[in-house]
Design a protein around this nucleic acid. Structure first.
Lengths: 342, 342
DNA sequence: CTGAAAGCGCTTACAG
DNA sequence: CTGAAAGCGCTTACAG
């Protein structure tokens, strides 16, 4: 069946194609009477606007590409929802894809998005993505883009994410003041700036209260549940249990919790736990998981704004937004104190 | 700066535009030598293929629209990941949007996707979407589409989801054989076919072992954590605690768990819990949550296949795929037996 | 306030 | 195996 186009609408309404186009975009210079005649014709012949043809002409696709690692992580799910709502509010649609934290896949997906002529790209970089990769893929074509949650060393672009150093510091100070003296950092990809920043902060926070973070007590791994299980395994094989474990993220923490239980250890009682992200799961777990919020909803909402500004004004200097983290203390890290008090 | 197009490539390579186009799509009839000359030209002048222009011409967008209610639900996140991988494997990109379980939002988002001329649509319908709504929005324009997870009464289309009646039956039989006699169904939107099917199955499963599901013990609510908290509240105000609670989904269950604890009740010990979805969270909770798997990964993978077949062969009769559910028994529903044994 | 014409960047028969 | 020409469905100056 032949597609119904603007030409058919024009014929049915007895006006020119240009007039139909003007009516479709609510241009004020069309008389109310003509406008109505056109709308009646549209309803009668069942015309549907073709955004792609318009894009072809205007060179604005009203579509944003977004590549994140894994939306099963509640942190990214929350972020994706907030972003979609914000962009939808500005008339943009979201082309979404998942890199599974693999750079090669990410690169290919970004390439497809560029070919689709998205107006901008939001990227949560895979763990092994380099500045050179991004310059080739996004910088060279002048594609407006925003990095979220993970920074790339020596890469200048818009960025939004939590202040990970400060987040680490908050958790370090908390653990030290609770009386824990041997602390491990578990999970999270080596070399990721987020992990390094959290580790640096953690060390500084502990140190303020006279506690040292042993360099050997760092057990990297994938940034998900399986990574948590594996990293905990390495820790258990490494030697005696520390007093407290700082998990790279709540996803990692859930792996650590199940790993501990599998080893006959009770989280909170046998070893304290702290974490990052403060997803809703952290609050309802048992015992409740102490965690530092990294504000996925605000990353999404404010991130959308940053990208839209970048699209509107490409010559803006690169901007970095660091969100202030917030520590939520729960039972997983306060049992030692309780036992002492008792 | 002027955009680099196929014309520039043709000029640089000393061939016609048609030849460049043929090379880009790997048509075999171009000589290896010409092919290479074109590729060299592309690299030299930094040409990027414009998929939109191609779409304009071929009328195939190589893009699929997907509207789900809420990707923070781990079930939908898993589903979205599986779908994206499967479609990406066939060269399709995914335009994703979230209805927040509101029909009006869903309808608007579907409209945008149709305007974007997606090749097909995957929809997890909002709770109040009707057959007439879908006929107007998708059926009329002949848009290939697939419904997932929730069926719509009196609507003929491709559908894939778990066999909810059978899922309910599995849980009902399990609870009855564990010795629970007063069972409640908590959470999930009234009128959703998924809830009705699960309830029907639950009743049948209990009945096989002589247990009756009291019609008054059904407490509907939103299909998320908040909905679980609210529905549990209604149950607690309604009267004495039942022996066992069947939760509409793992998301609802997590609300029920926190609601119980807030009321000073321990899930598993004071009241048994069963649920649907069997997300990874169910396994690692404490106590472990008995849950019936609804196979989000298979819904995604097999669903992608169904939709691609529909796009290729629009005249196919509507197909329904019901996946066989699987019950995972965990501590949340086995403590009564243990106490008896002791 | 409305119409005729050019053009966005590709692909696709059709010739040669 | 390659080239000239038409066209996908819109928008945008430019006239009138």
């Amino acid at each position: 069946m032949k597609r119904v186009t603007i030409v058919d609408v024009a014929a049915a309404a007895g006006v020119s194609r240009a007039t139909v186009s003007l009516v479709l975009r609510d241009e004020p210079r069309i008389s109310a009477e003509t406008r109505e005649r056109v709308h009646r014709a549209i309803d009668e012949i069942g015309y549907v606007y073709d955004r792609r043809a318009a894009i072809m002409r205007t060179q604005r696709s009203m579509t944003i590409g977004m590549v994140v690692t894994d939306v099963r992580n509640p942190y990214f799910a929350e972020l994706a929802m907030a972003l979609e709502v914000a962009l939808d509010g500005h008339g943009y649609s979201l082309l979404q894809a998942y890199s599974h934290d693999e750079h090669r896949r990410e690169d290919r997906l970004l390439g497809v998005m560029v070919e689709h002529r998205v107006d901008g790209v939001i990227l949560l970089p895979a763990k092994d993505t380099s500045a050179a990769d991004l310059r080739t893929r996004l910088g060279a074509g002048g594609m407006p883009h925003l990095l979220i949650a993970r920074r790339i060393r020596a890469y200048e672009s818009d960025y939004i994410g939590a202040d990970n150093v400060r987040a680490g510091k908050l958790l370090g100070e908390h653990l030290a003041t609770q009386g824990y003296e041997r602390v491990a950092l578990v999970g999270g990809p080596t070399g990721s700036t987020a992990r390094m920043d959290r580790q640096r902060g953690l060390r500084a926070g502990l140190k303020r209260h006279g506690v040292t973070l042993d360099a050997k007590m760092s057990f990297p791994g994938e940034a998900n549940r399986e990574g948590g299980v594996a990293a905990l395994q390495a820790l258990l094989e490494h030697g005696p249990l520390p007093d407290a474990i700082a998990c790279y993220s709540d996803s990692v923490a859930s792996g650590v919790v199940s790993g501990l239980r599998a080893a006959g250890l009770e989280p909170g009682r046998d070893v304290a736990l702290g974490s990052f992200d403060d997803t809703p799961e952290a609050a309802i777990q048992h015992p409740g998981l102490t965690s530092v919020s990294t504000h996925p909803d605000r990353v999404g909402t404010d991130g959308a704004k940053l990208l839209l500004e970048r699209i509107a004004t490409p010559e803006l200097p690169p901007r970095t937004v660091l969100l202030d983290p917030h520590l939520s203390v729960r039972a997983s890290s306060t049992m030692l104190e309780r036992r002492r008090a008792a």
